[in-house]
Design a protein around this nucleic acid. Structure first.
Length: 918
DNA sequence: GACCTGCTGCGGTGTG
């Protein structure tokens, strides 16, 4: 066995020491190719020995050629993997007289600086770690001139993302620095298009390239189990408890679900279960992982966090709570069970709805047929290019612009970057003062230091920590939960602003925590553990998970399956003489003010159509609308003929509307926010000044969430009568699935407008409004206060709701109606109309108060009396006091027109009397 | 109502 691969004698001895039981197929096939010096991409599922397949031949070559630090750069996308791998690689390397060093953000300072005195032969790091070293590590960077090999782990995780584009430029930069075409080896999970992956991985390297693809040999045995929908979370938890075979991994599709299911498991008295997701602190996650490895945990309920390569030890069963979004993730999750390669996979998909069952069966069928999604590399992300331009400038100080262009263009992601575009990018960065260009050479500009600051005090919204410069991952605003100074978990800031108050009890990581103190400035929440109380589970708002088109195409076929649930769906259509759902039929269903277009459709096309319909409604009619998009169709609140109108438009018009709709979506604004600092742009963008930025944000938004060309084609098919249109009176089973997907609301760049529209005809507290318009209460309050001034339709006014002693806001033009309405009767009708009060009025012209004594009765009898008494149109401030009990809290009001003053005076007296008699 | 991933070099000073 040892001689088949002709590895170095010293390595063979180590194989014996390890009691190596034989090479895996991946190793047998990849090792000879690597030894020949080719660039190799190894594609195989987890547990097939990919790491050693790459490492052993590289070690062999290191032993048999002059090896100087750093010879091998090993890249992995996660810190946890770096820690695992460093130990694993060190076992081999140290015994062979080679040294290994790791680098990531959590490596202790001492270990970091140690590598300069004793430079390692092997560096294990992340793409970001390599970025830091090339840009910034002026001393250590020199060692990278000796690089001969680069191994990139979990390639499938990187290639479709900006991190992948970043790494590919870094590889080209490394090649330029070393002046050597080093050998590249990639390790990937099973994917549909390994050839494309290898193209992106190998870049400008002229070595021969080969893909070693190992198919899974595991037997797939996954059951589909449907819970009664009405039983909800309890039903789900019971099904999980019943199917549990320790140790079990339970995958869900949201952080909320992990916590919610745990709560039910607790109620069912199921012990030794842990929760694992990205908003739980590393410490707490370690506890869960360690317990699982030690056999002390029966199960972990987790999200994608445990889908990736971390070693979780032996797993007997995998339960999927509701189907995952793609075959790839289905296989990754299910692949976690069965420790050995020939072990049997035991899995179970727990379904909540009928369409869950459709999806689960589709995923199982697809994986049995060996069909799996291809990965789509991100296209020419200019924010990555901008960051790399700066990286090269940091590295070299002063660089010729053309040289940077040549390096960046070496990356496959930027192979087609036009020189004009690059020049435009440089000019834009120069305009934003990120760069200074002089005589064809460029250096850093002042803007760079304004944004990326060393000691990040974060006073200004656009100031970032210098450390963030090295990463393309943009973080959300979160509050850190802390107990005794140690992190426990994280909650999204908008959720904290809206729902979390001191004293609340929240559930995170399967435990209850009482909120002791919320510190808004540093975004910290101090908590203490409690055992009882009504706990709330936070909702984390993530990015949308787009379901794979492979899955969508499979579902129509599955509808002919003999499964009980599937037959039930099918017969609903057959009994009514209707066609079976497919991508060629649209059922138009009406209900609850929404028009549902039920059809099996690619999610990105569905998103595009939903946004276009919403755009048409919101630009012509009202922004108080919403749409929905799913693979089961789409819907719009309001007008039902819009889709046919869109379909009858020309191709060019449709494209224009689609792009306008994308620009009006919240998704566009979040992408804009994510990328703008890379270009040095702070603050608001302008159509004229920031053309490149807007174009790029639009391109990235479309690529991520929409499909314009396919939507154009879809509408053409609809217009030509190719699609069967069926009008339905009732809700079809798949139409119901559309209504279950979350509403998409229009983005408003003008908060005043949404606040005014929402106030229309009613009176609300700041908290109520904040929830209605999805803005933080502080923002809403600030806007309402601004809107008090002026005379237009949007002018606001506040009064005191006497029944619950809260301040309510309404449009000034609605106050009369509210005054007359039954629901606020007691707020404007004091019980004792003869009791006098003192009004103190300030006009804002001078600082003095005008004092007047009045009784409610006088006002009710002759409201104009007080209008005549006050010689001003506008009152800047009004205080009302009880002459008998002046210490009583006196209400204050601001910016009231003389016209509405009598109503407000009545409100004040009602309030004062309510205080007095309560 | 919706996943995940990442993040400051080098050298000087002071202390045991």
């Amino acid at each position: 066995m040892r001689n088949i691969l002709s590895l170095d004698r010293r390595i063979c001895e180590l194989l014996e020491e390890r009691k190596w039981s034989g090479f895996t197929e991946a190793q047998l096939r990849a090792i000879p190719e690597i030894l020949e010096g080719k660039n190799v991409l190894i594609v195989a599922p987890t547990g097939y020995g990919k790491t050693e397949a790459a490492l052993l031949p590289v070690l062999h070559m290191m032993l048999n050629s002059p090896t100087k630090p750093v010879s091998l750069v090993y890249i992995t996308p996660m810190k946890a993997l770096i820690n695992d791998l460093t130990l694993r690689i060190s076992w081999w390397a140290n015994k062979l007289g080679l040294s290994v060093s790791r680098k990531h953000g959590e490596v202790p300072q001492k270990e970091r600086t140690g590598r300069l005195r004793n430079a390692p032969h092997i560096m294990v790091t992340t793409p970001e770690g390599l970025e830091v070293d090339l840009d910034w590590a002026n001393k250590f960077r020199e060692y990278y001139r000796n690089v001969k090999w680069m191994i990139i782990d979990e390639v499938h995780e990187l290639i479709p993302t900006k991190r992948g584009a970043q790494l590919s430029v870094l590889a080209e930069r490394l090649k330029e620095l070393a002046g050597y075409d080093f050998q590249r080896i990639g390790l990937s999970a099973t994917v549909g298009n390994p050839k494309t992956l290898s193209d992106y991985l190998f870049g400008t390297s002229i070595r021969r390239r080969v893909v070693v693809r190992v198919k899974t040999s595991k037997l797939i045995d996954v059951n589909v189990n449907k819970v009664q929908e009405e039983l909800g979370w309890e039903g789900g938890a019971k099904a999980i408890a019943k199917g549990l075979k320790p140790p079990t991994l339970i995958f869900t599709n949201s952080r909320f679900s992990t916590e919610r299911l745990f709560e039910e498991m607790e109620r069912l008295k199921v012990q030794k279960v842990y929760v694992h997701h990205s908003s739980i602190s590393r410490d707490m996650k370690n506890i869960a992982e360690d317990n699982l490895r030690k056999g002390e945990a029966d199960a972990i309920i987790c999200t994608k966090t445990l889908e990736l390569g971390i070693d979780v030890g032996k797993i007997r069963k995998v339960i999927l709570y509701r189907p995952p979004p793609s075959v790839a993730s289905f296989l990754q999750r299910v692949g976690r069970s069965g420790h050995s390669i020939d072990g049997k996979i035991e899995g179970e998909v727990i379904c909540l709805t009928d369409f869950d069952v459709l999806e689960a069966i589709s995923l199982i069928e697809l994986s049995k047929e060996g069909k799996i999604e291809g990965l789509e590399p991100i296209q020419e992300p200019l924010d990555v290019a901008a960051r790399e331009v700066l990286g090269v400038v940091l590295q070299k100080g002063e660089v010729e612009v053309g040289q940077i262009y040549r390096i960046i263009r070496g990356s496959k992601y930027f192979r087609r970057l036009r020189p004009e575009t690059f020049d435009e990018l440089i000019s834009y960065m120069e305009k934003n003062e990120l760069l200074v260009v002089e005589g064809g050479k460029t250096s850093l500009g002042r803007g760079f230091f304004r944004i990326w600051q060393f000691d990040h005090k974060k006073r200004l919204p656009w100031v970032r920590s210098f450390s963030e410069f090295f990463s393309m991952i943009s973080g959300n605003d979160v509050f850190l939960l802390r107990y005794e100074g140690k992190p426990v978990g994280e909650i999204d800031a908008p959720y904290v602003y809206r729902y979390i108050r001191n004293g609340d009890v929240i559930r995170i990581s399967g435990r209850l925590w009482k909120v002791m103190r919320i510190n808004n400035n540093v975004m910290l929440i101090d908590v203490i553990p409690v055992t009882k109380g009504e706990a709330e589970i936070p909702i984390w708002r993530g990015d949308s998970i787009i379901r794979s088109s492979l899955l969508v195409k499979e579902i129509p076929k599955i509808l002919y399956n003999e499964n009980e649930v599937v037959s039930r769906i099918r017969s609903w259509y057959i009994e009514r003489g209707l066609p079976i759902p497919s991508n060629n039929v649209i059922f138009v269903e009406k209900g609850q003010g929404e028009t549902v277009f039920s059809t099996l459709i690619d999610e990105k096309v569905s998103m595009t159509l939903a946004h276009m319909l919403m755009f048409e409604v919101s630009s012509k009619d009202t922004i108080n609308t919403f749409a929905r998009a799913s693979i089961y169709g789409f819907s719009i609140k309001g007008e039902e003929d819009l889709l046919w109108k869109l379909a009858s438009k020309s191709r060019e018009e449709v494209k224009k509307i689609a792009l306008a709709a994308v620009r009006r979506s919240p998704l566009f604004y979040s992408v804009m926010k994510e990328i703008q600092t890379s270009f040095g742009k702070m603050g608001k963008t302008s159509q004229k000044e920031d053309k490149l930025l807007i174009r790029e944000a639009l391109k990235q938004t479309v690529q991520r969430y929409f499909a314009i060309k396919r939507t154009v084609r879809y509408l053409e098919r609809l217009n030509s009568g190719e699609l069967t249109v069926v009008n339905l009176e009732s809700q079809s089973p798949l139409g119901k699935a559309v209504l279950g997907s979350p509403p998409i609301r229009p983005w408003f760049s003008d908060p005043f407008r949404i606040i005014a529209e929402t106030l229309e005809g009613g009176a609300y507290t700041v908290t109520e409004l904040s929830e209605m318009v999805s803005l933080p209460p502080s923002t809403v309050e600030a806007r309402l206060k601004k809107m008090r001034r002026g005379t237009g339709e949007r002018r606001t006014i506040s009064f005191i709701d006497v029944d619950d002693a809260e301040i309510r806001w309404c449009l000034a033009k609605d106050l009369r109606k509210i005054y007359g309405s039954d629901s606020f009767y007691s707020s404007f009708h004091p019980n004792e109309v003869d009791q006098s009060a003192i009004a103190m009025i300030r006009t804002g012209q001078d600082d003095g108060f005008l004092e007047m004594l009045f009784t409610p009765k006088e006002i009710i009898e002759d409201p104009d009396l007080y209008r005549r008494k006050i010689p001003f149109e506008e009152v800047a401030e009004l205080r009302v006091k009880d002459p008998a009990e002046p210490i009583l809290q006196s209400p204050r009001y601001y910016f009231i027109s003389r016209d509405l003053l009598p109503i407000i005076l009545l409100n004040a007296t009602s309030y004062i009397q309510s205080l007095k008699y309560s």
